[in-house]
Design a binder for these strands. Sequence first.
DNA 1: CGGACAAGCTGA
DNA 2: CAGCTTGTCCGG
Length: 613
Amino acid sequence: MAPPEPRAEPIDEPDDPVEPVEPGRVVRVLPDPPAINKSFDYLVPDKLGDQVRVGAMVRVTLHGRRVGGWVVGEGVDPADAGADGTQARAPGSRRTIALQPIAKVTGWGPSAEVIDLATWASWRWAGRPAHFLRTASPDHAVRALPAGATAAAPVHLVPDEVIDAAFAAGQAVVRLPPAADPYPLVLAAATRGNALVLAPSAVGARHLGLRLRRAGVPVAIMPRDWALAAAGATVVGSRAAAWAPVHDLAAVVVLDEHDEGWQQEQAPTWNARDVAVERARRAGVPCLLVSPVPSLEAQAWGPLVVPSRAEERDGWPKVDVIDRRDDDPGRAGLFSDRLVTALRGGGRVLCVLNRKGRSRLMACTSCGEVAHCERCEASVVLSDEGRFDCARCGTVRPPICLACNGTQFKNLRAGVTRVREELEALANTPVVEVTGDTRDLELDDARVYVGTEAVLHQVASADVVAFLDFDQELLAPRYRAAEEALALLVRAGRLVGGRRGDGRVLVQTRLPGHEVVQAAVLADPARASTAEADRRALLRFPPVTALAAVSGASAPMFIEGLSHAAFAGLEILGPSDGQWLLRAADHATLLDALAATPRPPGRLRVTVDPLRL
DNA sequence: CGGACAAGCTGA
DNA sequence: CAGCTTGTCCGG
């Protein structure tokens, strides 16, 4: 033996060599580093016996080092080892394993229900269970749960046939217009027991929670009140709260279901709305998805409950459409007379100009029509070969105006900084520029703002919201562009209020007849969604199909394995820019194929339900 | 993840 | 062939 060199760090491990284990409680632990995609069995020391249960967060020794983990199973028989789902123990190998004891119990963690949900999510978004369990875990160790909150105090509930219809359906998509207050619906859910209520922004969720609390409802506001949520209360939060513990789940409500923020941007691209829906399904409790502009996904999921025509109309803003085809397609295009009047009118004006991305728009010099794809309506760009290329569906056509057969086109674009200066001159007042990374400094000083859509998030209210170039939203080369554009109008509508007030939304466009514009003008979202549903069906985009994008260094090998197995109903498209696209008629076909294909080592990025292609 | 160990690359 | 880098495997 080498001379005992003093160890740099004294690790206390008195019971080093574990002897062949006699009876005792054994639990299965999933280590916390997501890369260890495997669970292991551990012994429960007697003194920890009362704290170790499924969902407990523990620390264990793995390969000589301490890692955190979750107890995901109990009462396992160590004889039938091979602890994980991915790889069964080699047949014939009968080796007994010297089990290590659990080193420490950190505290409470996600419940068995949420652990099962994480297993489902790892299939649904091709991710690691540890990733979801991390999201589902408290940010500080929870040693003990507080006393469970008692039943809600009596609350005055406004009888409302929309609410009744929604809950009667068990699962429903509730279409409430932008200016409508969803609070009565949330309150109705909370009076049924411990509800899970999700709102897209943390601030909005907090306000909602405080409002419920004032009404006497016991409320846990996530992520701070994790322990209270686990003990029993109505749980309110934003995206991560889809994973909150809820003691005796009675109902699920997702507000602004259409919001793209529900989906996580990096893989696994899980969607909180879909997690909430699955949760409600598993618990057998009512689930309501609320939105002024229900997504096609939601509409494919559940029945639509709609308020009266009059109520819905009142909840949409007055929308003025300004047809820019009448303008000189050159410089004056961004500043219509109507806009100038609004700028000089005295109220607070927000001007929205999304200059993100490289979207170059071409307009016909003779008639002003924006060059767009004849197949899918997206804007097209002039390729080096002198043809129009559609970035969305790939259709190529000769550069001829679809409206007047003109062959001359002008490149339209404007920098936001110059626009700010011009607005300042036109309005004769200081104009503040707001972008994604603007801090909320002297924001309320100004009367006129200009910026990307961030301006709609950072300013609380306005008299006028003007979209300087709405075509950029309508024609963006993303397959969800129409839904995203309508969502912007919803946001604008909330800032200016319903049509009984004085607020207005100005839409400058060369496509005044576009169904998204018409949907807002007529307060009828169905106009947009029926047109969009047809287009998606034609192009075989979700929700008619299910998609996944595969990229990264080891993508070629993964794709090879996938195509070798020749899964029925799975299409493999690409590669384009090093990215493959997988398409199937439904998620089950797509995800079962992904799950059945071994992952090669190396970087592999699988994006299920990509928002852009 | 991170340690163990095996298989390759380099240098004299 | 030592000595080091790079890769693959595996953990209870």
